[in-house]
Simulated scan of single mutants.
Amino acid sequence: MTPLSQIAWDDTVLPFQLDRSDVRGRIARLDGVLEDVLRQHDYPAVVEGLVAEIALLTALIGQTMKLRWKLSLQVRGKGPIRILATDYYAPETEGGPARIRAWASFDPARLEEDADPFGQIGEGYLAVMIDQGEGTLPYQGMTPLAGGALSACAETYFAQSEQLPTRFQLAYGRSTEAGQAERWRAGGVMLQMMPSSPIAAREGSGEGGLLRHADILAGAEDENWTRANVLLDTVETMELIGPSVGLTNLLVRLFNEEVPRVYDPVPVRFGCTCSADRVRTSLSIYSARDLRHMTTAEGTVTADCQFCGAHYVFDPLTLGFEAVKNPDGSPKEAADG
């Protein structure tokens, strides 16, 4: 029998406010959505762990923003693990689910299963991209990879680019419950304080002089922030991952003295937006000559979605800005006439 707490809180982000300390936050727990993301691929365990971590970060960050469409996180490095990429799509309707997809690129020949996962990304950067949809300009912010974990990089991004003190406490791994198959689970808490006044430029205490969350606040704000962080540091791994502890119970256990207030939870699901039409659009910039170089021995152009593994096959004569056929195979002149 599945515990009630698991039914209620798996694949969910719960927004909250700590009224005493003026800190906002999110608690997230991912279960089935991680399985849906990872089953699309056959990643080694060290890569799966990083994908789980960045998917959890994406769920927490995506829910904090006034997002109309898409948030993307992308990690690029020079090590064996070259790319980690996620997309978070805001709910399309009130009370509807948000959607997440993720993938990774790595060099199997250089990968070390027993080495520190973050260290195998190597020198690189974390990019945060926000696309609010048609008629708006996309936003992109970047921060160097530093601090020993993806969550530390995200904290640095908010301190450097947004000047918002931000903390993450994450846990993820394979979980085995009685009578059930082993599966990935992840859980995390995000805290964020909105400073009441602009922050003067200063030297950061992080790696390479980067700002950290502790460098930003002063006075009463600093006291409130420190107190909330001390409480966050008491959380245990199994409390985060669950499933036996519900998110509201965990919130009360951690922050009862800070007067927590919760908002409507947001369900999270796996979702990919790829389609044949989108692939056609991405190939519309190529000439017939370019497409001949992409054509297989079977006389087709193929494309695979990195996120969900969907495989698309096209007649090259229907592609590009010099296409002579419509997608249905009919002569283009007939449709144009």
Rank of each mutant, 00 (worst) to 15 (best):
I83P: 07
L84Y: 08
A85Q: 14
D87K: 13
Y88P: 11
Y89F: 09
E92I: 08
T93D: 01
T93Y: 05
E94Y: 13
A98P: 08
A98W: 01
I100S: 06
I100K: 03
R101M: 07
A102S: 05
W103L: 05
P108A: 12
R110H: 10
E112M: 14
E113I: 12
D116R: 13
F118Y: 04
Q120K: 09
I121C: 05
G122E: 04
Y125P: 06
V128K: 15
M129Y: 13
M129L: 11
I130G: 08
I130P: 06
D131P: 04
G133E: 10
E134Y: 11
E134L: 13
P138Q: 03
Y139G: 11
Q140D: 05
T143G: 15
T143D: 10
L145C: 08
A146P: 13
G147C: 10
A149T: 12
S151M: 04
C153F: 02
C153N: 05
C153H: 02
E155S: 03
T156D: 15
Y157H: 14
Y157W: 06
Q160E: 15
Q160I: 11
Q163K: 06
L164T: 15
P165W: 06
R167A: 09
F168R: 00
F168A: 03
Y172S: 01
G173Y: 04
G173W: 05
G173K: 07
A178W: 12
Q180P: 07
A181T: 06
E182H: 02
W184F: 02
A186F: 02
G187D: 05
G188C: 00
V189E: 04
L191D: 02
